[in-house]
Design a binder for these strands. Structure first.
Lengths: 350, 350
DNA sequence: CCGGTCAATACAAACGTTTGGATTTTGTTC
DNA sequence: GAACAAAATCCAAACGTTTGTATTGACCGG
């Protein structure tokens, strides 16, 4: 519990002024090479670390990047976030920054949190996901001038960097897969209306259905939980089991469908078909194995981190006034659940 | 982009000194009720927010709590962390604090990160998981005097608060379940040696096997990835398929076993049995449904958050010199994979 | 009406760093 | 060796709070 070692301590021991010590450590050309070395040496020896708060106050920058976790955040809600946090922190640390996390309980709270971050200077930049077209969080950030990167499109995306997954393509993939043994009506299970990625998914799915001459799919905009998936499945499966096809935006929803089907004595691949999303662990081993798409979380995390760091490097708008945009294609994983199998062997499906 | 509103602005507009304004906002009994109201009003109107850095500098406290994410942090490595972050941030925000996250690439880096947090005052307290008996991070924290809560036991746990999951019980649960139709030799797949929760699991499993008069299980200390599970399963299943039983500390490992079995044409429940852990989404729908245990992430997260807040409330050691300890019992989820089924119907297993 | 008490507020220092400008030291040139 | 430029260093202010102490004014008893 000995006294903290600050610039003052170093300066005292070296017989110079704190300002010189400070400049020496920051490689200011004004200090002589020799003194710089001396300072460095002592700083290393005493294990000097600059006080983050003092620096933040003086420089008007917190040295932190915030990640906003959107609700709902139950157990496996968005598998990518943990990977994002981990990857991002590693990159930030290399750049001398650190990571702050904010989690909102409900959507309304999100904009308050953003405002708080801006006003109290809790971070120098923000990453936010689950965007909407006219996202109030984005509007606020644009107005405040704080740098940010979105994970998902917005109506103002020409004014900020963005990374997104091509959910429209995911929707097309799902319909195309289900169409292969096109059976009964198609039900699309997607996240609530307004959420951009879900809107894209639905749009892609509908467009593809139209292109293939299929009847318009029934849309269900629900929370992405197994429970919500069950609720929808129950409604669909109860009355008329005419081999419906389920396009689910996330595997968690598919699992809900599986559960209801099992309880009702229905067999996926004979009485109904299912296509999932996000390739949750375990989805490969369900009976039958779940056809789905994957989104390469580590790649997305890496990309978001890099984009954020580049955004911070240049201060202010990039010279040519444009911002980085990246679109990531979902990868199709065709297994068994998307198609009907005449007889139901159901064992040893590779 | 108008100028930031600080105490100075308020004081100027109100014609008083900043100190009075500060005290008014902090409910100091020294200010008159009337002025306090006036200050409050203007502060609300101008939407005043105290500058976090300045406060941190002055008070010597950052107002943040750090969570250390242990490696490896791939996709679904530790499902609980996201829930923890979310729950924790909500509680912290209510208390006027915020959340910082640090992710280490490798174990060696973890202690450096802790040192950095302590030295640069990046946080006022830390939560760390994946503890070891003699954990160097814990040793460092004890020495520094920074408050912290561990998720898992240590050799010094009488000196800090702790929350843990009873993994010994989980090990016993697994063996007992597998014993029901006790077939061939038992293989225990657990996380690397030294990690406390894994050591407990192994100890519990071995003790239970001994108690039941079973031959000593074979131990495999591996990373908790599907890949690692596969590697072990391949070695076991290749030579002698004498109905081995797999006790896996996490479902991800079980999934690896499932995959190898499927590829080899073996059927879980006929040629081998499996018991998992952590109840991953999808584990209910595998063929056959995976028997496992669950750990109620939301409860753990809630508990850790509460303990941390209580630890911060009292500054210094609690009066009676003891710290909170909590043990959470795993919940048994008996499905199908743990037992042998004579004939292999394998359809419609509820 | 004066000394004293108390409430309410103002003053000023401090937290550890960065940075513009003043000051000292060093080196060069005549 | 004096004059001057350049290099190196020091001084002091500032960032926005919090908090110990000094100051002011009001009220009271004697």
């Amino acid at each position: 519990m000995q006294k903290r070692v600050g610039l003052k301590t170093l300066a005292l021991k070296l017989g110079m002024d704190v300002s010189t010590v400070s400049r020496a450590l920051r490689d200011d050309p004004r200090v002589k090479e020799a003194t710089r070395r001396a300072v460095r040496e002592l700083a290393d020896e005493l294990d000097y670390r600059p006080n983050a708060a003092a620096r933040a106050l003086r420089m008007g920058k917190s040295g932190r990047v915030a990640v906003l976790l959107s609700p709902p955040q139950q157990r496996f809600a968005s598998p990518i976030f943990l990977e994002l946090l981990s990857t991002l922190d590693q990159h930030l640390r290399d750049a001398g920054l650190s990571l702050a996390v904010f989690a909102a309980r409900e959507r309304a709270e999100e904009v308050d949190i953003v405002r708080q971050i801006v006003d109290e200077r809790l971070a120098d930049a923000i990453i936010l996901g689950r965007t909407r077209k006219k996202d109030p969080r984005v509007a606020l950030l644009l107005e405040s001038g704080m740098p940010f990167v979105t994970f998902g499109q917005t109506d103002w995306q020409e004014r900020h960097p963005m990374v997104e997954i091509d959910y429209a393509e995911a929707g097309r993939l799902a319909i195309r897969a289900l169409h292969a043994s096109a059976s009964g009506p198609i039900d699309v299970l997607a996240a609530p209306e307004g959420l951009n990625f879900a809107d894209n998914y639905v749009a892609g799915a509908c467009a593809e259905a139209a292109r293939l001459g299929l009847p318009e799919p029934t849309l269900h905009r629900i929370e992405m939980t197994e429970q919500a998936g069950e609720d929808v499945a129950r409604k669909i499966l109860a009355p008329h089991p005419q081999q419906p096809a389920f396009a689910c935006i996330q595997d968690s929803l598919s699992f809900g469908v599986y559960r209801v089907a099992a309880a009702a004595g229905l067999i996926v691949g004979r009485d109904l078909t299912v296509f999932g999303g996000q390739n949750f662990p375990g989805s490969e081993h369900t009976a039958p194995p779940l056809s789905t798409f994957s989104t390469e979380d580590s790649h997305v995390a890496e990309l978001l981190s890099k984009v954020m760091l580049r955004r911070l490097a240049v201060d202010g708008t990039p010279v040519d006034g444009t911002f980085e945009h990246h679109e990531i294609a979902p990868k199709l994983l065709l297994r068994q659940s998307h198609r009907l199998i005449e007889r139901a062997p159901l064992t040893r499906t590779g």
